[in-house]
Amino acid sequence: MKLLLVGEVRDDRLTAETAELSGFAARLDAEVSMVLAGSADALPSFAGRLYLADLETCGEFSSDVHKRLVLDAIEREQPDAVVLLHSSYGWDLAPRLAAAMQSAQVSGVVGLDDGGYVVESCNGKMRRTVRPLTDFAVLTIQPGAFAAAPMAGSPDVIAIEAAPDSAIEFLGCIEPERGIDLSRAGVIVSAGRGVGGADQVELVRALASALGGEVGASRPVVDAGWLERARQVGSSGQSVSPSLYVACGISGAIQHLAGMKGSGFVLAINTDRDAPIASVADLLVVADLAEFLPALTAALEQR
């Protein structure tokens, strides 16, 4: 099998997750090449053909230019599949490639199943196996699902370019609010949509305080304004690795799991025992938060 990997550059560096594309290719025992909009001054460690375009000319966020680059590399390399990360870059670019190639796309691959690709369904509660029916396929792999393969060697660079005109004009980046650093917290108690309302967040605060920990949040809680955005845990928030992570009413969307998978012990409290948070929980308590959180807080305070 011949795979063309689409590397990702952010802030002038190849993202660490790009090595997961190599890990995925290794699982398939595939022959690999890579296409990348980057810089000739900072070549990635990679043994194989590297189709390299200049990032500054292409623009980091011009998906139409990147589409033309990858299509050019596909034309030259004739791979069986092109593989991207299911990241904000990859899931935006992949269907543009599939449309141009009139091919199958498999989104968010988390595993392999007898020649098919395993993907998540129903907010991560379920899984299914998708098989392309076309000879060529576009695949996006879920960040964190495949172990990174060590990147080594020097690439055989083939310079490519695409017309830089883009229908999408990049105006700038908005940096996240800072101020609360959860990355070093030993204990984090996070509130999810299941807490039910802004006033109920107090129960989460009380437990965090009894455990001497910080309060975290899942995305819906932040979007609803129940907690400040700086407390968001997940791929669009902070990545955390506390000794104890308590997930209160968090169903466990894969983006949330990606931000807390480094936690030591995971206690999840949820009324739905099939919620995907169960896939990472060391202890799942099936209970009503309004009853259980005060009981646990009281028990801790009585120690």
Partner: peptide, 11 residues
Amino acid sequence: PKASSGNFRPH
């Protein structure tokens, strides 16, 4: 279709 889907199962 361009792809098939099957083996639906719990996480």
